[in-house]
């Protein structure tokens, strides 16, 4: 039976579709032309400009702050939540599961406006604080489901085994549960951090004066700034993310 070539061709087509815009953007970032578009020769000057641009660095700092707070809190809440969903059955957990699942399907705009309404209604000043609260909220669900996914690969009888061998609840938690969960918690944390660093829409709704994160800053550059700086910033961010992905791959392979 001859295999159809269609899937292969579609695959290659899709890969081109996914990568070409990226390649075009990176190419543009080395274009000496002031307005982008036509090729005017190779240059690194936009990258140099980037490093002199204070607001970008301030925004990056804000983003890191929010991502660290968001990741820290959501990892604790999400891990507990995933553990509870795994460990218990019954009415409470059904409600819990739907509650944790719902934020995953709600579009960002909706979450952004609803949080804005909450903050405005309760008189909380918008700023890094409200952004952090928002980020914790959408990260919890992701962490919880990553942890839950990990837990489902476990053989739960190891918990019985620990108790059978003389460990109380506390010892079992510290010596068995936590070490076994560590990789799951770590991937949940990486995911939460990435989502937080990347979020624009929700952040945009609940940001206040002086709390510009990197994506919000990129947005205002796209709307009002010169293309050349964004091109360079894009190139830089892509280099950083690809570097991190490669590093992560190597790390994962080594820990296997």
């Amino acid at each position: 039976m001859r295999r159809s070539r269609l899937p292969l061709l579609a695959g290659i087509g899709v890969l081109l579709f996914l990568y070409l815009p990226m390649v075009a953007l990176v190419a543009q970032s080395f274009n000496a032309s002031r307005f982008g578009g036509r090729w005017m020769g190779f240059s690194l000057k936009w990258y140099a400009r980037l490093f002199e641009n204070r607001p970008i660095w301030d925004a990056l700092w804000n983003s890191l702050f929010v991502a660290l707070v968001g990741t820290g809190v959501s990892v604790v809440l999400g891990t507990l939540s995933g553990w509870a969903m795994h460990r218990y059955r019954g009415g409470l957990q059904r409600v819990h599961h739907s509650l944790v699942y719902a934020p995953l399907v709600v579009p960002d705009v909706l979450m952004g406006i609803s949080l804005l309404l909450l903050f405005v209604n309760s008189g909380v000043p918008l700023g890094l604080g409200t952004i952090s609260l928002a980020h914790i909220t959408f990260c919890i669900s992701y962490v919880a489901f990553v942890v839950l996914g990990r837990l489902q690969e476990f053989d739960d009888s190891v918990l019985d085994a620990a108790r059978d061998l003389g460990a109380g609840w506390w010892t079992t938690f510290w010596r068995v549960v936590l070490p076994m969960l560590a990789p799951g918690i770590a991937s949940g944390a990486v995911l939460a951090f990435t989502l937080s660093i990347d979020d624009f829409v929700i952040t945009f709704f609940v940001a206040g004066p002086g709390s510009t994160t990197l994506p919000v800053h990129v947005y205002s550059m796209i709307r009002h700034g010169t293309p050349t700086l964004i091109n360079a910033l894009s190139g830089l961010l892509m280099a950083v993310t690809f570097g991190l992905v490669l590093l992560g791959q190597r790390f994962i392979r080594q820990s296997r």
């Binding site: 053989d155 190891v158 019985d160 085994a161 620990a162 108790r163 059978d164 061998l165 003389g166 460990a167």
Partner: peptide
């Protein structure tokens, strides 16, 4: 269980991975 001098070899072994 932790206070019984009884130990178990589990059906799935339940070794700590």
């Amino acid at each position: 269980p932790e206070r019984r001098r009884i130990n178990t070899v589990f059906q799935s072994y339940a070794l700590f991975p």
